[in-house]
Design a protein around this nucleic acid. Sequence first.
DNA 1: ACCGTACGGTACGAGGCGGTACCGTACACG
DNA 2: CGTGTACGGTACCGCCTCGTACCGTACGGT
Lengths: 202, 202
Amino acid sequence: MDELLTTTLDVLKETGYERLTIDEVVSRVHASKATVYRRWPSKSALVVAAFVHAVSHLPAEYDTGSLRGDLLAGMDDLLNEMERLADVMAGLIDEKRRNEELATALREGFLDARKQVAAGAFARARERGEIAPDADVEVLWQIAPAVVMFRWLMMGESVPREEGHRLVDEVVLPLARAGRRVSAPATPPPPPPRRRHAPPSS
Amino acid sequence: MDELLTTTLDVLKETGYERLTIDEVVSRVHASKATVYRRWPSKSALVVAAFVHAVSHLPAEYDTGSLRGDLLAGMDDLLNEMERLADVMAGLIDEKRRNEELATALREGFLDARKQVAAGAFARARERGEIAPDADVEVLWQIAPAVVMFRWLMMGESVPREEGHRLVDEVVLPLARAGRRVSAPATPPPPPPRRRHAPPSS
DNA sequence: ACCGTACGGTACGAGGCGGTACCGTACACG
DNA sequence: CGTGTACGGTACCGCCTCGTACCGTACGGT
């Protein structure tokens, strides 16, 4: 039943993995525990199935003709997905360390999908000459998801669309265009970085 | 007892908040549950105290004389802290949504501390003329923690020091020097970004 | 030598939850 | 109309874990 999976995701969103109970899920759907255990062998399997179901229609592919268009579209997509899934992920991050299937689902269903989409956009941009040939795609693709998830998960706040777009225009795009070269007259090799409460007088 | 707090953190690291039990903690310390409950009113209070204790000696302040030196020192600090605390945070992210004191501890003890240190480094750099006057510090300070935590928490991998330094040299520093202006001949205002499987031919 | 305090140990209560077993029933199919 | 399958409901088992109560004891101050 589709409804069981989506409701599982709702409960997950509210309570996290450990506090989610099968009883709570079935009570919202007018189903019975027996029905759940007829279809999935365990709570863990149910949750994994619910997550896979939620990210299964993710890999949006777009080709707007410009890198900026592609990145903005990807950002909108990311922000939408986070609105749906940020709390879910918060509730799964810890369990993922113990549950190999869950870790795989998150990696393949969410992270790899985003990476592939971004990699395609950068590849096309490179062919068009929009970005530096040596742009470090392996780092670039991570920045937007990292900052957005940092804001959602660690700081507990949502990211408005306008700010997401600024992240594209003022961070990702400039970096992609500049490539790896350090952009300005480099400071001399830094003095040996003394750490922790080290005023120069010491 | 200091030992109770550090051991609590150890257990937290291994099992996460929900699966942490007082019995497990005291069994490792040769203490008794009574001792715990004499000192802290609940499991939740113990865990919050353990986390606060762990981040209490955090706010490293350094002034190496150059922005690059400051940022590299901050990055080393961040990587060290993540080595200690990544699993702990994974085990607390979900609980933080329900536990206001925990959320405060994480915000004030970890995030704000890092932000202040970074803000100081950028302010000094601006006075020295090392960076653009309009550099967006509010975004810049987040990038390093965001990417590092993304790698630890979402991708489940550690970040080698060399890669952290590249993040400083090829991402944060160039952005700070360039400021907000878009770095290269802007692409024309993008064609209306059509989303989701939209080849130009459609 | 006395006493109070804090300790480790442990037994216990109470509630919660995963998972199973067994109802009676509704509905599709032939 | 007969049959079987899947369902909702529910009682139950076993286990876990928070938190409390009550031991006997070690130890430091006076």
